[in-house]
Design a protein around this nucleic acid. Structure first.
Lengths: 356, 356
DNA sequence: AACGTCAAAGAGACCGGTCTCATCTCGACT
DNA sequence: AGTCGAGATGAGACCGGTCTCTTTGACGTT
């Protein structure tokens, strides 16, 4: 069955049609399963196709149909367990619906994200799932929407973008977790995020471009204010963009005159570094320091002590975003939907009464 | 700048040409940067393009050039930290070289993998990076190669496929780690892998389809044999395909009359479950049980005790595969290259002398 | 027998780019 | 001045599908 090995130039409908002794149009009908074709001809064509090992050229098909069968996905960093799990959710749903996924990492960089959108637009993806790095700078997304491209936002919304959005109730989770820490007597609670500001200092939540994180910080600050705490803004640390940055920030923080008694890590990568640093400094969790991390990463349950986390429905976040998008692509959706999935707080042994 | 908002039908070169008052061919030349165009015309065309917000249709371009600018990547499971890191390596290199990545999970299922290759072939990807589930069943890959599609193999090779291949020296790592365990006095060493056999029992390494794992097991068995151990085959356990499976297997193993004194986990997901089970059973690592895991996942360094691992150059595995593929796509490569990257054994506190 | 209907098949335009080939213009060289 | 060559542009084929429009012919009806 390898006689035709040297064939490198691809087989087209015209070839199949010729071999089957019918016109190109008829062969296309038989192969494409549209129009009317007699059984006899259909068999002849499929036989010819099989013999020639014909494979339809999706590109050419996309050309005329205007549908490429692909979804563009732009996430911060596929290496981050949060995103890899979300992408798993997306790809599972997409494949089920007959779509393939083009994946691009933005590195949480606005410029890279814009370029990614441009690339995907040029590739004529049927739809877009984006986790925008900055909720304010979404002009490139507006543009995509304007050109008629269905868009779904993942984990981060945007007030100015009226499109399908799937987020978790991060504000609520942050409020809850902060309340618990305060109830445990903590008054020096630090919040640590990878999001950065131009001068690497935090002043107001408005400066935080990443929506999910902004909402968490707002929740955190709100509860602190409610509890009568002041100057909480100074306990928010930004710019933990690499493990090295995080280690430096955490080390300084813990060695200062007024070290925090509790730390909330905005993602599991940061949480992991906090855990490593506390060890290196010879501190004890939860005796000297309480730790809460966003994202129930695998490591959080096997440390000593295991870490209290906000368990986000990450897989569902991705799967739901894909589901909304696919429905829209199939014309089943009308007005944009905003889905908010529930977080769950998993209280483990890394949180305890503040001692002081 | 939004006057042209209602434009949903896309702008083509013909539109730009018309607006600039030149022929389609000339406009295409100016926009595509090929052929010769006078400065005056070039400016007129680019101005018209900007004004109409022209975006080239990559699909149409691919149609004639025969290059789609995409690389198809098929991995077992993007949720697995091993693959997400490798994919990060791939996407970084691919983007650098101007390629985008279509990602498909095979779930380590041969049928799904074959379907994935078919899809990618239809989408006319320029090249393929695959981590084949089974090194024997590669007919679908042969077919891809036969049709002239450049292919690079990731983490798993195949003797019958003479293509660019990037693997780590897993056999060597397995030999080393086994030797160390034996030197520590272990004689009941279990090896645990997700790869499965039809009857879920292990007999010979030949039954293991996943090349990297087969080489590890061969290394493991070889060293055991060298050391005069017999019946080692019975200590190899297959089918740890989900956390639940793994927990069941490990629990049974540890509660049997002859429990292992050391376990080698074939990947970090399995290693994690072993760690969880030993805890649940109230055992102590390394007092009751030594543990070694393949893949230096983030959690392995923060457990108590931290886990001895085989640190695989995962990012480089992906990056190198992409590099080889890109070079081939650029016509710089001649004969297929087989790259073997070095593993490193990171000895931590989870391994100790067998007691008794 | 004449006509209408409808399934089946063919011819060819089209999608939006690239690219070959022909034409035209203009400066340089003999 | 006439010829040559290179640069600039236009016309149109082409990639491999889809899809519309037209033609053909078998069958049923009155």
């Amino acid at each position: 069955m390898d006689q035709s090995s040297p064939r490198n130039t691809s087989v087209t409908v015209a070839d199949v049609a010729h071999k089957a002794g019918v016109s190109k149009a008829t062969a296309a009908r038989a192969l494409g399963g549209y129009g009317t074709v007699s059984d006899r001809v259909r068999e002849a064509v499929t036989a010819a196709a099989r013999e020639l090992d014909y494979r339809p050229n999706e590109l050419a098909r996309s050309m005329t149909t205007g549908r490429s069968g692909t979804i563009g996905v732009v996430v911060g960093d596929i290496e981050n367990p949060f995103f890899s799990l979300a992408v798993r959710g997306i790809t599972d749903v997409a494949r089920q619906a007959g779509f393939t996924v083009i994946l691009i990492n933005s590195g949480e960089d606005f410029v890279a994200e814009r370029a990614a959108i441009g690339t995907l637009l040029a590739k004529r993806v049927d739809g877009l799932i984006v986790s925008p790095a900055k909720e304010n700078d979404v002009e490139h997304l507006h543009e995509a929407v304007r050109s008629g491209l269905p868009l779904a936002l993942l984990d981060r919304g945007s007030d100015t973008l009226d499109v399908d959005t799937v987020i978790a109730d991060d504000r609520h989770a942050a409020e809850n977790i902060t309340r618990r820490l305060i109830a445990l007597g903590h008054s020096r609670i630090a919040y640590l995020t990878a999001c950065d500001t131009p001068d690497h200092r935090f002043r107001t939540a408005k400066d935080i471009g990443t929506g999910s994180v902004r909402r968490r910080i707002e929740g955190f600050l709100g509860v602190c204010r409610e509890a009568g705490m002041i100057g909480t803004e100074d306990w928010v640390h930004v710019g933990a963009i690499t493990p090295e940055h995080t280690q430096r920030i955490v080390t300084e923080m813990l060695q200062s005159a007024q070290p925090p008694t509790a730390i909330i890590a905005s993602d599991s990568i940061i949480g992991l570094e906090v855990f490593k640093v506390h060890r290196r400094l010879g501190l004890s969790i939860p005796d000297d320091l309480s730790l809460v991390s966003f994202h129930d990463a695998d490591w959080t349950s096997v440390t000593t002590p295991p870490v209290t986390v906000v368990r986000q429905p990450v897989y569902d976040l991705g799967a739901t975003a894909a589901k909304l998008l696919v429905e829209r692509l199939n014309g089943e959706a009308q007005t944009p939907r905003k889905v908010v999935l529930k977080n769950e707080i998993v209280e483990r042994a890394s949180t305890r009464e503040a001692r002081f």
